[in-house]
Design a protein around this nucleic acid. Structure first.
Length: 340
DNA sequence: CGTGTTTGACCAGCGC
DNA sequence: GCGCTGGTCAAACACG
C-alpha cells in the first residue's frame, strides 16, 4: 500500500485560504463556515502528520526486516557451506572406516568373517547416511558398498533405505504402535533371541504399491524406548493429519518436537560410541538435522507468511495508525466524491 | 460385513 | 542334514 500518494493528496489542500482547491478537488469539505473550515484543516493536518510519522516508522521497520532477511540469507549460505564440508568429511570418514573394516577382516579373521556381520556393518553405515542426508536430499553413497571379498552385498540391503528411529514412550505401554504420519498394517510379531520384548512387523498400508516396511521393538537397554527400523522409502505423500490424529504418539523423523510436553523423539544415536567414526558421524548427523531444520524454517513459505503477518499485525495493533489511516481514507473518499 | 490385529505355521538363510 | 533364527503368511479373531 502506498501511503505517500495519500499523503501528497492530503497535503495538497489549500490551508491558507480555506477555499476550493482546483487540483485536489476536495470541495465538499470546505463549503461550510470559516470556523469549521479551520477545525477541519487542523484535524486533517494532524492526521497528515500522524500518517507521515507512521510512514517513517514503517520505513524503519521495513528496513529492519530487510536487514534481518539479509542476515538470515547470509546465515543460510554459511550453513550450506558448512553442510557441504561436513558431508565431505563424513564421506572421507566412511571411506576410512570401510578400509579399516576390510583390513581388519582380512588380517584378523580372514575370509571367515560372517556375511551377516558384514551386512550389519552395512546397515549401520546406511543408518548413518540416511540420518545425515535424508532431510537434505543427498543421495546415499552406499550403493557401491562391497564386502570383504569384493562381492556386491545382498541387493535388498543396498537398495532398501534403512533408517532407525528411537522414540521414548511409557514403559508400561505394552503396544508397539507408534504413529509417524503414515498408516501401517501389522503383519507379524516375533520374540527375537537377543531381546525378550517382542518385535512387531509393519507394512505400509499402501502396500504393495508402497514397499516400505518397519520393525518396532523396545530397546533392550531402555525399555521405555521404542526403536523403529524403517526399510525403503514411501512413494506417496503421508495421509492427512486428520486421518492419523487419533493416536497419542505422532512424530516426525528427525524433526523438532512441536510440543514440549510431547514424546522425546530422537534418532537412534546410542548404539555406536562417540569415539568411533560412526559415533562422530552420528553426532554430525544430529547437528546437521538441527541446522537443516533451522534452515528450512527460515526458507519456508511459513516463515515468509509469519513475516507478513507480523508486519500486518504491527500496523493494525497501533491505534494511532488505524485512526490516521481512517482519516486518510475518509479524506480520500471525499476527494473522489468531489471529483465526480 | 469390512478392516485391522493376533498368532501359530511356514520358509529361507546360516552355522555347525 | 539338522537346528536355530528372523521374517512372512494366512486363518482366526476382534471390533466398529
Amino acid at each position: 500500500m502506498d501511503y505517500s500518494t495519500w499523503l501528497s493528496s492530503s497535503s495538497s489542500l489549500d490551508h491558507t485560504h480555506g477555499n476550493k482547491s482546483n487540483n485536489g478537488g476536495t470541495l465538499c469539505l470546505f463549503d461550510d463556515s470559516p470556523v469549521r473550515h479551520v477545525k477541519k484543516v487542523e484535524e486533517l493536518q494532524t492526521s497528515s502528520n500522524e500518517v507521515a510519522t507512521k510512514t517513517s516508522w514503517l520505513n524503519n521497520e521495513t528496513g529492519a526486516l530487510l536487514e534481518e532477511l539479509n542476515r538470515v540469507n547470509a546465515e543460510n549460505k554459511r550453513l550450506t557451506e558448512m553442510l557441504t564440508v561436513v558431508c565431505e568429511n563424513y564421506n572421507e570418514l566412511k571411506r576410512q572406516l570401510a578400509d579399516y573394516m576390510s583390513k581388519t577382516s582380512s588380517n584378523e579373521v580372514g575370509n571367515a568373517i560372517k556375511k551377516r556381520k558384514v551386512e550389519n556393518v552395512t546397515v549401520a553405515i546406511n543408518n548413518n547416511i540416511n540420518a545425515t542426508t535424508a532431510r537434505n536430499n543427498v543421495e546415499s553413497s552406499s550403493s557401491d558398498e562391497e564386502d570383504s571379498c569384493g562381492k556386491p552385498i545382498k541387493e535388498e540391503a543396498i537398495k532398501a533405505k534403512i533408517s532407525r528411529v528411537a522414540v521414548r514412550t511409557e514403559a508400561s505401554d505394552s503396544n508397539l504402535i507408534l504413529k509417524d504420519g503414515y498408516q501401517w498394517r501389522k503383519y507379524g510379531q516375533k520374540v527375537t533371541r537377543d531381546n525378550p520384548c517382542p518385535r512387531a512387523y509393519f507394512k505400509c498400508s499402501f502396500a504393495p504399491t508402497c514397499p516400505v516396511k518397519k520393525k518396532v521393538q523396545r530397546s533392550l537397554e531402555d525399555q521405555s524406548m521404542l526403536v523403529a527400523t524403517y526399510e525403503g522409502e514411501h512413494n506417496h505423500a503421508p495421509p492427512t493429519q486428520e486421518s492419523t490424529s487419533s493416536s497419542s504418539r505422532v512424530f516426525n523423523v528427525g524433526s523438532v518436537p512441536s510440543n514440549q510436553s510431547g514424546p522425546t523423539v530422537t534418532l537412534d544415536l546410542t548404539k555406536p560410541k562417540s569415539s568411533s567414526p560412526n559415533g562422530i558421524a552420528n553426532e554430525t548427523s544430529k547437528m546437521l538435522n538441527n541446522a537443516s531444520t533451522q534452515m528450512n524454517k527460515f526458507n519456508s513459505a511459513e516463515f515468509q507468511k509469519l513475516l507478513a503477518e507480523h508486519m500486518a499485525s504491527s500496523l493494525t495493533k497501533d491505534p494511532t495508525f488505524t485512526s490516521a489511516l481512517a482519516a486518510a481514507i475518509s479524506g480520500r473518499f471525499a476527494h473522489q466524491s468531489s471529483s465526480d
